[in-house]
Simulated scan of single mutants.
Amino acid sequence: MGALLQMTGPVVDLVYNVTALPLRGQEARCTGFAMCSGGGFNAMAAARAAGQRVVLGGSLGSGPLADRVADDLARLGIETARPRLSQDQGCCTVLLEPDGERSFVGYPGAEGAVRAENLVQIDLSGVSQVLLSGYSLHYPKAARALVDWVAALPNTIMLAFDPSPVVHLLDADLLRRVLRRADWVSANASEAAGLTGKDDPQVAAKVLAQDRQGALVRMGGDGCLLAQESVQPIAPHAVDPVDTNGAGDTHIGSFLAELSHHGDPLRAARYANIAAALSTLRQGPATPPDRNAVEAIFNDDKAGQRPSLNQETRS
């Protein structure tokens, strides 16, 4: 089982629980607040919870926010592939509504700075998977160097691409180059429609899977679609979500880890659905369940001991 190399850097999330989003010029009423590592950290935490070795290839800075992230990386046993930069980590304001929906306002710090000379420091020994998010392609001081680097990856290393909510803002040429190299694409339904121009998620999933190993389209309450030679709906796991922030990242990290474990995309997609759903039962962006909790449900479902479920968290 090889390591997952995450090329999208972490940020610090400032999470405000709000009763509703504020109107323009008004202030939201807050019922809670938390500061925690997020961004690229979320998928790494999920892959670690599923038992995979994880290395951060994205940028980690120096300063109070970066130190918080560094502590969380160390706590999970996540290694860093290159030296820390001299600027602090960026942060993201998250407005979390009572139904678990979340809205973001962010600005990059060290995670938005990647140069070609930084990337040559990365040792690919033992790396079997690389994960890249569209957020990194949105950073002017990181995008081109990252695209050049992933385009030159050995074919023996699988590249997974998460287009992210900023996909419509990305440079079209850079996006094409990443999609040309990507072995897997994992997107929510809205992102998949934006990438393909197809509003039907099944059609979009089929388009995304062309000329690569496969694609996932995360369908929120309807589970996900796994597209390879055909498109297969993967049943969701029913929960009453408390906080959906980071659920899509949990899905991606869990899928990649389980794929590395067993090499079976169908099993990995089922595992990811359960892990993402369970992650929404706790407050915070990086709350993946441990492997034992997911496998207990997975094995029950496989044995036919649980009824068919038709509800899951949004991605």
Rank of each mutant, 00 (worst) to 15 (best):
N17L: 12
S190Q: 15
V114P: 04
V15S: 09
L281S: 01
A277F: 02
Q121A: 10
E295I: 04
L76I: 04
L60M: 09
G214H: 07
N118R: 08
G38Q: 05
A74F: 03
A293I: 00
I122E: 06
L23H: 15
P108D: 12
Q228V: 03
L259F: 15
E79C: 02
K302F: 01
V18K: 09
D264H: 11
G58K: 11
G223F: 05
V105R: 07
A189G: 12
P285M: 03
P307L: 02
T287K: 07
N273K: 05
L281D: 01
A142I: 00
A192P: 08
V55L: 15
D99L: 00
A46S: 04
F41I: 09
L208D: 10
L76M: 12
Q213M: 10
W149I: 00
L195S: 12
H262F: 12
G51T: 11
P289N: 07
S164G: 08
R314E: 11
Q6S: 15
A269P: 09
N310I: 06
V185R: 03
P10W: 07
G39W: 03
A182L: 07
G100T: 00
A160K: 02
R68F: 05
P236R: 12
A189W: 09
A81H: 02
A34C: 08
D240M: 01
G214F: 06
A192W: 07
Q305T: 13
G126P: 03
Q311T: 14
L73H: 12
D148T: 05
V242Q: 04
G253R: 01
G61T: 14
A49H: 11
Q87E: 08
T250Q: 01
G221V: 10
E258S: 15
A275Q: 03
G134D: 14
E117R: 12
M1H: 14
F104N: 02
Q202F: 00
H138K: 14
P22K: 13
R102C: 04
R48L: 04
L175M: 12
T93K: 02
V105G: 07
A272S: 02
P140N: 13
A272V: 01
D200L: 00
S59D: 12
A160L: 11
G39K: 06
L216T: 06
G40I: 07
L5Y: 07
P22M: 10
